[in-house]
Design a protein around this nucleic acid. Structure first.
Lengths: 277, 277
DNA sequence: TTCCATTTGGAATATTCATTCCATCCTGCT
DNA sequence: AGCAGGATGGAATGAATATTCCAAATGGAA
């Protein structure tokens, strides 16, 4: 005998993507009672394990009985644990088989160019991942708002930071943002080009180059906003700057990957270009 | 009643790492009968799915009955399928727990600088992965051997390739390799700097810049080796070059990630520097 | 062709695992 | 304090899955 009251009130439909899932998780978490909250926290921190774990494993990780975890799945809109797991098993890494195998092959002959390539690829990947983990969203937002209001954007980055500065200049140009690259050609400095209303992006990593610090000092003296792209919050350019974007770049040997720095540079440029309309 | 003959003759121990597993798989595969061979082939091509699949799923993928797949697991030295699966479930997830979660968060507010950053990070990662998969090892080795023998190494890369060219010049400098960056400053071209015994690295992506193609043509006319870093094997610079390094770079919007190109550039520079001693 | 060893497929079984259900325990409210 | 509502834990159930086993098929050697 089917009774209407047997049907749960609002059978929320299940999340259809991992992103969806995270969204629902964060909105729901604060409203949940103790045990379910534990589930939410543990799952949020170990989303990756869902695809390869059993109810019992996850439950014990979250320090709850399996039944609590089941309830949790249902509250999220899934029919049950298996239903939730399906989402993650399908989304699961559509392409690391070849990648990992290939990387192992490349590394095979130590000292060969291929082995080097594998190392640089890994350094780049690691840098990008750690940028994702540590990026300071509010610093980034501040930086963009300074740049969006600036008249001319000055860019300086020398030696190993020069490629990044060059790329920034290129992207600003493409987005019709007035920008000036201080490239030190002919040892000319253009400090007097810094005008009221302008802003400066200074890119520098240890060992920090004097020219960059000098220009940043000038800018600060003129009360122009300085956006620092650097390695640590404690870098010598920090006290000169209004927004600090710390980039956790991974070295391989003496050579610094630039992947993360470039990703940040592109973001700055494109976000600024967009904000200026 | 326990009988010695019940114990299988040589209970090969199970592989203890994924690498181990691949090794055993490739050595064993050629010796296996038809059905087991199918298992080996399918598993080799889909190693990544082991962690998240059932016997039935894998078996049907390999077009064999489940029992064949079980036998296959045992031949590899595992107690059974579950035993094999355990290896992959544990090996899995080096560090993407926070990473993926974080990326999902960054992407949260569409249009924000953080969302952009997440996209650029992903584009960079995808580029690096696909470089790992497609890199042509022999082209790389050839390129390095040309560069190792060259007197002076000329480098050209303009517009969006300029950062890469600049970085190459920087690394060569650090490694005391004689190199000249053709930067087109003052619209001066330095084609007469190309001397017998030299080599050229030309970096260009669609839309290919004329200056780069012209310099490559000059070099070819003088029979100097040209190393092309470009987007496709069919790029217009291909016919002018002695080694082609095709870089599968992923775009986000109109903006090209440079991660893979830089990884390749660093490899070229460091391998060359090392080879020159 | 016949025979033997090996391989194969599928049905039968054992095990693990997800899921449900209900008695009990909280917590907040009157 | 006493009550009601939801929350909780664990035992019982049922489904999915791995694993074994054996009869039948296959292929190669004599």
């Amino acid at each position: 005998m089917i009774n209407l009251s047997d049907i749960p009130p609002i059978p929320t439909s299940a999340p259809i993507s991992v992103q969806d899932f995270h969204l629902r998780l964060t909105t729901l978490a604060p409203t949940l009672p103790r045990r379910l909250r534990q589930c939410a926290d543990y799952i949020a921190a170990n989303t990756d394990r869902i695809a390869v774990s059993t109810v019992a494993e996850l439950a014990s990780g979250a320090n709850v009985p399996p039944s609590a975890l089941m309830r949790f799945c249902q509250i999220l809109g899934f029919a049950g644990f298996s239903d939730m797991q399906r989402l993650f098993r399908e989304a699961y890494s559509p392409n690391w088989p070849n990648y990992t195998t290939r990387l192992a092959n490349l590394k095979g002959s130590t000292g060969s160019p291929s082995a080097l390539l594998a190392e640089f690829i890994e350094a780049g990947r690691a840098s990008l991942e750690s940028l994702a983990k540590t990026a300071d969203e509010s610093a980034l937002t501040h930086a963009v708002s300074f740049l969006a209001r600036a008249e001319t954007i000055h860019i300086i980055g020398l030696r190993r930071s020069f490629p990044v500065a060059g790329y920034l200049a290129y992207v600003f140009e493409k987005m019709s943002v007035p920008a000036m690259l201080h490239d030190n050609v002919g040892k000319l400095d253009h400090r007097f080009a810094l005008r009221p209303g302008d802003a400066l992006i200074a890119i520098t990593f240890a060992p920090y180059s004097d020219e960059t610090l000098t220009l940043a000092t000038d800018a600060k003296a003129k009360s122009l906003p300085v956006i620092a792209v650097t390695d640590h919050l404690t870098s010598p350019i920090a006290p000169l700057s209004n927004a600090i974007l710390a980039i956790p770049e991974v070295d391989f040997g003496a050579f610094r990957s630039l992947s993360a720095t470039l990703a940040m540079a592109m973001t700055l440029a494109v976000a600024t270009g967009t904000a200026r309309g």
